[in-house]
Amino acid sequence: MSKIKICGLKREEDILYANDLMPDYIGFVFAGEKRKISFDQARLLKKKLNKRIGAIGVFVNEDIDNIISLANDNIIDIIQLHGDEDNDYIDKLRSKTDKKIIKAVRVKDKQDIINSKNINSDYLLFDSFTDKMYGGSGVSFDHNLLPDNKRDFFLAGGIKEEDIKDIVENMNPYCIDVSSSVETDGFKDYEKMKKIVKKVKMYSEGEIYE
C-alpha cells in the first residue's frame, strides 16, 4: 500500500487543497528558489494543516540547528535531506531529535542504488539526477535500476497521474512523491492534486472513485 506526498506547498490555498484531499504527507521546501518558503511561512501554514497529514521539511545542506528548531517546534514532522548530507550529518541530527529522517538519492546509475544501502536514514527517497539542481526537476529516471529487496522508500522524479498504476503494482514504494506534475504555471492545481491522490488511494487501498 503506497502513500502519497504532495511536495512544495507554499500558499494557504495549497493547505486548503491538502486538507480537502488528505494526502498522507505534504512537503515544505526550505531550499532552492522555485518552491522555497521561509521558516515563518511554514509555521503559519502548519497551523492550518490538518493534523492527520504529516509535514515533511525538505532541506539541502542546511545548518543542523535550523532543522532542529523546526523539528522541536513541530513545524515539521519528518526531515528530508536532499543535498550532500552524509552519515555523520544524519548521526548529529539523530542526537538532537527523534523525528524520522529521509535521505534523497539522486540516481544516475546502478552504483548510486548500491551506495544507498550504506545510508543510515529511516527512509530513502529515489529521485532523478540533474546537474544544475538537487531535486524538483520534474524529470524521471530509469525505475529498472531499483533493486527488488529495497527497504521502505519514497519515489520521486517526474511522476505523473498515468504512472501511478504501474508504480504501485510493480514497485510498491512506501510513498509516491509528486510536485511539478500537480502544478499549473508553477502553482499547485487542485484538480491535478485530486486526480493523483485518488489514483494512489484507488490502487493502494482498492477504493473505487467515479
Rank of each mutant, 00 (worst) to 15 (best):
S2R: 01
I4P: 00
I4F: 00
G8C: 02
E12H: 06
E13H: 05
I15W: 01
L16F: 12
L21C: 01
G27F: 01
A31K: 04
G32T: 10
E33P: 01
I37P: 06
I37Q: 07
Q41G: 03
A42C: 02
A42E: 00
R43L: 10
K48Q: 14
I53D: 00
G54I: 09
V60L: 05
N61V: 08
E62S: 14
I64K: 11
I64R: 04
I67Y: 04
I68A: 00
S69F: 15
S69D: 14
A71T: 15
N74G: 12
N74Q: 14
I75E: 04
I76P: 00
D77P: 02
I79P: 05
I79M: 09
G83T: 06
G83S: 09
D84C: 10
E85P: 04
D88A: 15
D88I: 15
D88Q: 15
D88H: 14
D88G: 12
Y89T: 07
D91L: 15
K92P: 05
R94K: 14
T97M: 08
I102H: 00
K103N: 06
K108F: 11
N115E: 11
K117T: 15
I119M: 10
I119D: 03
L124R: 05
F129R: 11
D131M: 07
D142F: 14
N149W: 02
D152N: 14
F153L: 12
G157V: 12
I159T: 05
E161A: 15
D163N: 12
D163H: 12
D166R: 10
M171F: 14
N172T: 08
V178A: 03
V178K: 04
S180T: 07
V182S: 03
T184L: 12
D185T: 12
D189K: 08
D189M: 11
D189E: 12
K192A: 05
K195A: 13
K201D: 08
Y203N: 13
E207F: 09
I208N: 11
